[in-house]
Write a protein that binds this DNA or RNA. Structure first.
Lengths: 177, 177
DNA sequence: CATACATTTCACTGATTACTGAAATAACTG
DNA sequence: CAGTTATTTCAGTAATCAGTGAAATGTATG
């Protein structure tokens, strides 16, 4: 499959950024490709379009499936798997945040809890103890809040965001009572 | 400088996570060390404590300075630079979000704007054009919103977060009028 | 301004991660 | 169930990134 100029630039850029986003180039390219594609694509088609090894596509798709960013669909009369991603930016965003939370935050939270439980903690200065505790609390509050925000209806969330900083007046009014 | 068990585990873990957070191990370790340290430390002290090459510390500190996570302070009667990081989780969080926005989002926003401006765009299907446009809009809204949120007073932000999902009722009430 | 100390640069090595392609396995079809 | 097509595994290679240590550069002080 030949890519149009715009699609090609989009896919290549997404690939470049992939590294910064914590996934490799191929994974990001495949996701970009599926995102712009009208139909679900087979691994073979992806391989041809991107010009990478078949096995690379296979592994990358597995990673995208693990992130739940891509799912398998089937086409009548075709035994091959076809792959598809959501076209809904919000949905994608949620999945990405969720994934990153699992990989980038959860392990740290566990370690911090562990440290706060450990008997050696008593040997530390008050400052250190406080700092670890504050870090742990901060992470808890942030993850809890982000969970709640992502559970809201997109429209509601949109309203909240549109409100922006003016939220502060609302909050002040609300908590004053 | 010898590290206590708790500090050591903290520093090592922070280092491990560094890679997932987009910085290398040493950078993350140094940051962790400064975060728990009562006083500002010299590059030499950091080198000894972490057991890495002096030059590695130098480069890592430079990276931390670029993130503005660390700053140089001076001690009377000592010509060496001493390095310090904020102990305020909020402040650190803001700096990290800001840095990641610059590195992970800004380039994409530019490319998308570029694509939307390009003459080749006309060759694309309506669906593709819409998808790119939605992506661009989404990024704009999100970055603008996060900018505003991070500018709020920590206490205000705290209230907003404590409110959590109940924000939706507030918003509904507010926009109904 | 010479010396000593402090810091950075840079070429190299080591470690990690991404990708390939052949071989193995699995899944469907006549 | 033999043949065909689809998919995955895996060992090897390529590419990238992290870290080292010697040499070069910079900077304060007697």
């Amino acid at each position: 499959m030949e890519l149009s100029p715009v699609t090609q630039r989009f896919v290549l850029h997404w690939g470049e950024m992939g590294t910064r986003w914590g996934v490799n180039r191929t994974v990001a390219q495949i996701h970009a490709l599926l995102y712009l594609s009208e139909q679900a694509l087979t691994a073979e088609e992806i391989t041809d379009t991107l010009g990478v090894a078949r096995s690379n596509v296979s592994n990358s798709l597995k990673e995208l499936l693990a992130w739940r960013l891509v799912k398998v669909v089937h086409v009548l009369g075709d035994r091959r798997d076809h792959f598809q991603t959501s076209k809904d930016v919000w949905e994608l965003f949620k999945l990405i945040v969720e994934g990153r939370k699992q990989r980038e935050i959860e392990p740290t939270r566990e370690v911090l809890n562990d440290l706060l439980d450990s008997p050696e903690l008593q040997q530390e200065s008050i400052e250190t103890r406080q700092r670890i505790e504050q870090t742990q609390q901060f992470i808890s509050i942030m993850t809890h809040w982000s969970d709640e925000m992502l559970r809201l209806e997109p429209e509601t969330l949109m309203k909240v965001m549109k409100l922006g900083a003016r939220i502060s007046s609302l909050v002040r009014r609300d908590t004053k009572t």
